[in-house]
């Protein structure tokens, strides 16, 4: 059995999770502090990918990065670079789809953070960067970790937007979810079952991790 789809899915999910980790936390941290109106608007825009059908996200992405797209056009003209239908095109789609999960869980964690801890740190002369990494992040650790795990899980299962921008090319862009679809179309049920089982196993492991994190959260702090 060719394990390329597993490897490809894992690397896409992993890289996307790293990207959304930083972007999501950055957005969450600043939006949690923003004035109410701005917060409301930005919140809607940033959460949109969670409620939109993934095909709509894929459509917008193609409008931007396809060789005729707003940015893709220049990449193609200047560097002869074709971003779509490559394995890393899936990183774009997966990052966008998983971003709201990371952003919303992190924002919830930041909003419930006791501001007096920040003030105490500042009056003690601690730098804002120190306070962020040594006080705020450890205190919000569980919420943020839950966001990471959820993003990773969602990233592994991403299908709609990914199939539009990365397509299905065996050994190049195939992921677990696109492979399952392809195998079903080819009526290769035996192999499809194997991938379905792998998928089930990974999803269960992720949910178990999230539950354990939540339990720790109740017990700790």
């Amino acid at each position: 059995m060719d394990l390329f789809p597993l490897y490809n899915s894992l690397r896409i999910a992993l890289i996307s999770t790293i990207i959304t980790f930083f972007l999501g936390i950055f957005a969450a941290y600043y939006i949690a502090k923003a004035p109410r109106l701005l917060k409301g608007i930005l919140d809607c825009v940033l959460t949109l990918p969670m409620v939109l059908p993934p095909t709509v996200v894929g459509f917008f992405l193609l409008v931007v990065i396809s060789p005729n797209g707003i940015i893709g056009k220049y990449l193609f003209e200047w560097y002869n670079l074709r971003v779509t239908m490559t394995w890393y095109a899936a990183i774009f789609s997966t990052s966008i789809v998983t971003f709201p999960l990371m952003y919303r869980t992190a924002r919830g964690a930041f909003e419930s953070f006791d501001k007096n801890l920040l003030y105490a740190g500042q009056t003690l002369g601690l730098s804002n960067i120190y306070i962020f990494w040594k006080v705020i992040m450890p205190t919000c650790k569980q919420g943020i970790l839950a966001g990471v795990v959820l993003s990773f899980a969602r990233g592994l299962g991403e299908y709609g937007a990914t199939s539009m921008v990365a397509g299905y090319t065996p050994n190049r862009t195939a992921t677990i979810s696109t492979t399952v679809y392809q195998l079903w179309r080819e009526s290769n049920d035996a192999l499809a079952y194997k991938w379905v089982m792998i998928n089930l196993f990974i999803s269960l492991a992720v949910l178990l991790a999230v539950n354990l994190l939540e339990k720790n959260q109740k017990r700790g702090t």
Partner: peptide
């Protein structure tokens, strides 16, 4: 502070 504001993870 009234609520002490100790860093909980330290």
């Amino acid at each position: 502070f009234q609520n002490y504001a100790l860093f909980p993870m330290m």
